[in-house]
Structures are given as structure tokens and as C-alpha cells.
């Protein structure tokens, strides 16, 4: 398996002091640009009402309170569709979509990376080209396809397309290319194991970083999904959509808005913190050939 090289010292021979200072200065400035708005969101969510409307506005909070979170939960309990329903919708779609994507992508990636048959290079190239266009291009036409398949306004409209992402297949295939040794698979085949068993019992355990990465990428997309043009019934809408509706209900809800953003952003960030090293390992194999 690919092991990451950890650099022991950053004082290599051809590092000038001036360069070190410059690099750290740029990192500090850019780091502040990236981090301060995130911090500001968290601080806003902790500010009591009078501090939110204080003049001049302050960056830091003086009397932190969880009042905004309480307001948010009170607003949630007054919603027309029970709020637990929205949470269930997002959880259901995220879990099923992520699971489906990991299974289908890795199965297809395995056969492309580790088996030989006519057409596999063509099939992979199609996926590589599809990485080049954003899903906004396909969204409108997909509405037509979905309505033909009677998927509009069901959970499946969000789950099924999420099950086969070009990113999923691409990352899985690239990772399997470098970290699953073909000889191991050969010997299992000679022992009479079927392809599906070789895939499931030998290849899959070897590519744990790749499927963890896929879980994170796929989960964060589905978790962050707001309103969808494929869904119009209130009881199928997502948690993110519902929370947006609450907080756009007036200027007095700015604090609750910040609180909801904090809740929404904590989940993907925590997931990333625990999987970072696996993700970096996967991305190191993601390179594309000329």
C-alpha cells in the first residue's frame, strides 16, 4: 500500500531564510482570510441579540449565549412538517446514496482496474471526460428523464443519480491501480475464487482509504444538498432546505441563521478531521495521464 513519506525536517539545504519568512507571512495572511469568516460565523451564533445589533459591530463575543440555538430549536418545533422528518430525509438519502455510490463505483472500478476485457478503456475514458462538465449542464434534462421514469418527487430522484458519480469511479480506479497488487488477485483466482469474491474479500479491504474518501465526498454533497428541482412535496425535502426556510424568515433571525450554519458545517468538518490522512493518501493516486 502506498505509504506517505513524512518529511522529518523542513530545513533542507537550499532553503533561504528570506523565503521561509515570506512563505510563513503569506500562509498567515491567507490563513486569516480563510479562517476568520469561519470563526466569525461561530462567534455570531453565540452573540446575544443586543450584540448582534451593536454599533460599531464587534468581531468577538462578550457574553456568549446559546440563546440562538434555543431559538432555532423553538422555530423548528413550530414547522408544519415535523422537523424530525427533514432530518430523516437527509439521513436516509445521505446514507443510501453514499452506500450505493461506494458499492457500485468500487465494483465497476475493480473490473476496469483489475480485469481485462474489450471496451474497458473506452468505458473509463467516458468517465474521465464526464469529470469535465459540471452537473448544472445535466440537471434540467435530467428532470425530463426523471419524470419519464416516474422518479420526480420521490427519494429515489436524489438517491439513484448519487449512486454512480464519475468522481467515485475515477478515484476508486486510480487507487486500485496502484495499491492492489495483481499477483495477489491472480493467486486467489487460481485457487478458484469467483471474481466477485476476489473483489469483496481481497481487493476491498486493501482500498479502505479510497472508500473512506468516497464516503466523505459523497456524504458531504448529500448532506449539504438544499432544495432540489426534482422534489416539491414538503415531506421529502432536505434538512438543509428546511433550516434555510426558517432562517430567511426575517432579519430578527440572523442569530438563529448563524446557529443553523454552525450546525450544518460541523458535521462535514468533523468527518473530514477523522479521515484526513486517508483522504490525502487516496488523492495522491488521483493523477491524470496526459
Amino acid at each position: 500500500m502506498a505509504k506517505l513519506r513524512i518529511r522529518k525536517s523542513n530545513h533542507a539545504m537550499n532553503r533561504s531564510l528570506g523565503g521561509d519568512i515570506g512563505i510563513n507571512a503569506v500562509l498567515l495572511i491567507m490563513g486569516a482570510f480563510m479562517f476568520l469568516p469561519m470563526l466569525y460565523t461561530i462567534l455570531q451564533s453565540l452573540k446575544p441579540l443586543d450584540e448582534l445589533w451593536m454599533y460599531p459591530p464587534r468581531f468577538f463575543v462578550r457574553n456568549p449565549t446559546l440563546g440562538n440555538f434555543k431559538t432555532l430549536f423553538n422555530l423548528m418545533s413550530t414547522s408544519w412538517v415535523p422537523f424530525s422528518r427533514y432530518i430523516f430525509n437527509t439521513a436516509f438519502v445521505s446514507v443510501l446514496g453514499t452506500f450505493g455510490n461506494v458499492m457500485l463505483s468500487s465494483m465497476a472500478a475493480y473490473s476496469i482496474a483489475k480485469m481485462k476485457f474489450p471496451g474497458k478503456n473506452f468505458l473509463f475514458q467516458v468517465v474521465v471526460y464526464s469529470l469535465m462538465f459540471h452537473s448544472t449542464v445535466t440537471a434540467i434534462t435530467n428532470f425530463y428523464t426523471m419524470s419519464m421514469l416516474r422518479l420526480v418527487d420521490t427519494y429515489w430522484a436524489r438517491i439513484i443519480p448519487a449512486c454512480a458519480t464519475s468522481m467515485g469511479l475515477y478515484l476508486m480506479k486510480q487507487f486500485m491501480d496502484t495499491s492492489v497488487p495483481t499477483t495477489v488477485l491472480e493467486s486467489a483466482r487460481l485457487d478458484g475464487a469467483s471474481e466477485i469474491r476476489v473483489f469483496w474479500q481481497i481487493a476491498m479491504p486493501m482500498v479502505k482509504p479510497a472508500w473512506l474518501t468516497l464516503i466523505v465526498f459523497c456524504f458531504k454533497d448529500l448532506w449539504n444538498a438544499g432544495s432540489s428541482i426534482y422534489i416539491y412535496s414538503e415531506q421529502f425535502k432536505s434538512f438543509n432546505y428546511a433550516i434555510q426556510q426558517i432562517v430567511t424568515g426575517g432579519i430578527s433571525r440572523q442569530g438563529a441563521g448563524a446557529a443553523s450554519t454552525v450546525i450544518m458545517m460541523m458535521v462535514p468538518i468533523l468527518v473530514f478531521v477523522f479521515t484526513q490522512s486517508n483522504i490525502i493518501e487516496t488523492m495522491s493516486t488521483s493523477g491524470m495521464k496526459d
Binding site: 480563510m34 458531504k220 449539504n224 450544518m264 484526513q276 490525502i280
Partner: peptide, 13 residues
């Protein structure tokens, strides 16, 4: 890495 990557995964932050 976390600080620079976080804004892109945090939904509508």
C-alpha cells in the same frame, strides 16, 4: 489543510 479546506465543504457557510 483543514483551515484551507473547511470553507469548501461547509455547505452554505
Amino acid at each position: 489543510t483543514l483551515i484551507f479546506y473547511a470553507p469548501s465543504i461547509s455547505g452554505n457557510v
